[in-house]
Design a protein around this nucleic acid. Structure first.
Length: 407
DNA sequence: ATTACAGCGGTAAAGGGCGG
DNA sequence: CCGCCCTTTACCGCTGTAAT
């Protein structure tokens, strides 16, 4: 029986197929972006007037495309290049990326923008308009411009008062008519239809400058995977045929989701599978195994789940457990709350009371984690029934528990 | 110090729909 | 049609910050 230390040591020092694993993670921003030249060009064109006459007008651009089509990464890369280009021209331009899942209210968003810009605004006590005024004046004082990307924008727009709030952002300069327009916006959204549904009249306001991101095809995915695999894996770990196989699985023209995110995750899991069996290369079986685990819907949830705080995670876990226990497709909100109380104890949390539980449930719903419907016959009184359609419960459960353990 | 005001979370009353 | 029971919401108190 080897010592614990020995076991851990062996595991850590065992060889890996990964040279730089992090380069396969969704949050990694690669230096080049295959098959997104058109979108970058469009973005550049829309911001052209900024470079010729900064501050003259406020730019508003909307990036639209389904999950894993490179919206976020394109935006970040554009922002980075734009600001370095600007600084070469003697303009101070900063790029700020805000995730609307994490910053759910307007004041939070403004606060986070200013935080990223190195501006300290109070978190409390000030209204959104006042925060906005503070931000604008500070930009003015520093002679700085900013491109603000609002990621997962459809979620923000869906929230009650979301659309009204947007005007606070976008019309902020109405009261500074002769000041330079220092704030510019990139809205990132999964689809335009959600925005159109909310408020058709004001949607035209956002839908003027649209850059579309189409799902990746088989050959496009191959190019992306090839490039990333070269950076992240040791040479010879994976063959072209195997990369093509993954591309085939996910390629939009081959009936896949067209998501680079999912394709990359399959690559990561396949690599992990090879590692765990101490093989120095990835086999087709590794990929098949990985494919079973990595479902597009799950990969989509992955980054959203990480935006949840502990209480929301525990509550989500409660929903999962309640559903597992009931065996039926739906459970009542009250049952979920009971389980939530128990789970809080297990995770050493002071349980939130009913109001908070309720609002968190609403939030989980608007983020798409759960679905709700009103109870019909067979229930006494009115009750909200909660269901999860995203993925198999046991997979979700292990994923959420893993996240909770990470503290 | 005092006022004013926003977020957060809780309490309790109001609302809503079905069984009896 | 009543009463029940869970959901939903109105409102309150507490805390933290800026302006006065």
């Amino acid at each position: 029986m080897p010592s614990v230390e020995k076991i851990i040591e062996d595991e850590i020092s065992s060889p890996s197929v990964f040279k730089e694993k992090h380069k396969l993670y969704p949050e990694y921003t690669p230096s080049s972006l295959p098959h997104r030249e058109k979108q970058l060009k469009q973005l550049a064109q829309l911001f052209k007037s900024f470079f010729s006459s900064p501050g003259e007008e406020m730019q508003r651009v909307m990036l639209v495309g389904s999950f894993g089509t490179g919206k976020t990464v394109t935006s970040k890369l554009f922002g980075a290049s734009a600001s370095s280009l600007a600084s070469r021209n003697g303009i101070r331009l900063k790029y700020v990326h805000v995730n609307c899942y994490k910053s759910r209210t307007l004041p939070q968003i403004i606060y986070n923008i200013s935080l990223d810009l190195g501006i300290t605004l109070p978190q409390r006590g000030l209204s959104a308009q006042e925060l906005m005024r503070g931000l604008i004046e500070e930009l003015e004082r520093r002679n700085t411009y900013a491109i603000v990307a609002l990621d997962e924008f459809d979620y923000f727009a869906l929230m009650s008062s979301g659309l009204n709030s947007i005007y606070v952002l976008v019309r902020a300069y109405d009261e500074y008519v002769n000041k330079k327009k220092r704030l510019h916006f990139i809205f990132i959204s999964r689809s335009i239809s959600t925005l159109e549904n909310i408020d058709p009249s004001s949607s035209t306001y956002f839908l003027k400058n649209i850059v579309e991101f189409s799902p990746y095809t088989y050959s496009e995915l191959y190019d992306i995977l090839k490039e990333r695999a070269d950076e992240a894996l040791y040479p010879g770990v994976i063959s072209d045929d195997e990369l093509k196989y993954i591309s085939m699985i996910e390629g939009y023209d081959k009936g896949g989701s067209g998501s680079a995110r999912t394709a990359l995750e399959i690559l990561v899991r396949a690599g992990e599978s090879a590692d765990s069996e101490k093989r120095s290369s990835i086999t087709l079986d590794d990929i098949r195994k990985a494919h079973v685990i990595v479902k597009p819907e799950l990969a989509m949830l992955q980054d959203q789940v990480s935006a949840l705080d502990r209480h929301e995670l525990v509550l989500y876990l409660s929903v999962i457990k309640a559903l597992k226990g009931s065996g039926s497709g739906f459970v009542r909100i009250g049952d979920v709350e009971k389980i939530y109380r128990v789970l809080c104890e297990a995770y050493n949390l002071q349980p939130r009371r009913h109001t908070q539980v309720y609002t968190h449930i609403l939030e989980l719903r608007s983020m798409g984690f759960i679905q709700t419907k009103s109870s019909g016959k067979g229930f006494r009184g009115k009750s909200t029934l909660i269901g999860i359609s995203a993925a198999p419960l046991y997979v979700l459960e292990s994923k959420v528990e893993e996240l909770l353990k990470r503290e």
